[in-house]
Design a protein around this nucleic acid. Structure first.
Lengths: 216, 216
DNA sequence: TGCAAATATGAGGATTACTCATATTTTTCC
DNA sequence: GGAAAAATATGAGTAATCCTCATATTTGCA
């Protein structure tokens, strides 16, 4: 009945972000409710200004209960981040799955970052969480894990359509590209719309040059 | 008599990070001393774990005095960040100043990022401050201003050696490149040494492709 | 129904950035 | 030199907030 959003690709690294695995159905629903409230609060005021007391109040539970489910504030952000990341990985994986030629890789990459940019524009919560991840030491590890996971997806596809290129070079470049993609999104949404659009275009233009036949 | 630390290139955006402009010589020395202590503490434990009480104690002053010079904790990080940024801008400006051809731009860029990477490796405080800047809303604006300032330096040089390329395209690309350069540094120093080296190499390789004659 | 396990509660502990009324030092001006 | 004024120093105290824990309530099950 309750279907959890199982990351269908590779989970980045699952720390125990829930204090106890909820065994009762009501508990699992409550976890979802807490996350929904937290998400709404982050949308309204940002994760930094979000107070644990507010989350508890909006969710209609006591602070004690809140801490029964999440060991600390970062765990809430962590969980939300993991969900967005899982969604990203999924769309990346499905976009790359059908790629068999370099030309297809180029158009898949292009489409991917258009989608990614739209997501960033549409989801203020996602944007905020990305910033929060940079702030916290623990959460920063998630970002790296995420870049690595996405980098692997790109590297596999890339190596498939261009087997003559050294694997190490592909892997390094793939990690860098996916990481810089995230950085570009953050930059693009932090400036005004037309400039953001141009920045994303510039990024795509720059990266697409990498996916060419001549192995320099 | 009062000589303020004037950034020799373009100041990114000077908010009043000092509570009062110290008029007496002893005060200015004290500001320097506070910053030195803060820097040492950041090196030891990170800006997040650095306590204002510790800074005061190490500097041999009371908390009240500390707050007489800096309006809040972020202001200390802000000031330190501005200094590093000013140093970066200077080295970027001097590296680009003598560039007159595309080939020279390429080698200047390459040399610049080698230096930048070395700085990041050698200066744990700088690394920490970069992370801290992402965390705080106010400080994040500095990062953007910094990217813009550096982007302008690159754009000017680039436009000089390649006047046929549309100015808008150069400006967008320059901002993106300098911003992504910072992101690459952060990524490179957060992984193990050999991988970090390869990542920096991959970045340089990728960007140097942009500085070519064919205006695609 | 009654007992044990799971879950809920919220007052309070702990930490920490920052304030402010007061005290001290320095400068100014006769 | 001395007194008034301005600048600077002080640190106990305030406020904000995360999180704990001893206790109460609810649920699952025999």
């Amino acid at each position: 009945m309750i279907e959890e959003p199982i990351p269908s690709v590779e989970p980045a690294e699952e720390q125990p972000s829930l204090r106890r695995t909820p065994s009762q159905k009501r508990s699992r629903e409550r976890v979802e409710h807490i996350l929904a409230c937290a998400s709404k609060l982050i949308e309204e005021k940002g994760s930094d200004a979000m107070r644990m007391s507010e989350v508890a109040e909006m969710a209609g539970i006591s602070i004690g209960s809140l801490y029964q489910y999440f060991p600390d504030k970062a765990a809430i952000v962590h969980t939300l981040a993991e969900r967005y990341n899982a969604a990203s990985r999924d769309s990346i994986a499905s976009e790359f799955a059908k790629v068999t030629t370099l030309a297809e890789l180029r158009s898949a990459f292009s489409a991917l970052f258009d989608t990614y940019y739209d997501m960033f524009l549409a989801e203020p919560v996602m944007r905020d969480i990305w910033s929060a991840m940079q702030a916290d030491k623990t959460l920063r590890k998630i970002e790296l894990a995420e870049s690595r996971a996405n980098g692997r997806l790109l590297a596999e596809t890339w190596a498939r359509v261009q087997p003559e290129t050294p694997r190490q070079r592909i892997e390094d470049a793939a990690l860098l590209i996916m990481h810089l993609g995230e950085c570009t999104m953050r930059l693009a949404v932090s400036v005004d719309r037309p400039e953001g659009d141009r920045i994303v275009a510039a990024f795509k233009h720059m990266i697409l040059r990498e996916f060419v036949a001549d192995a320099t």
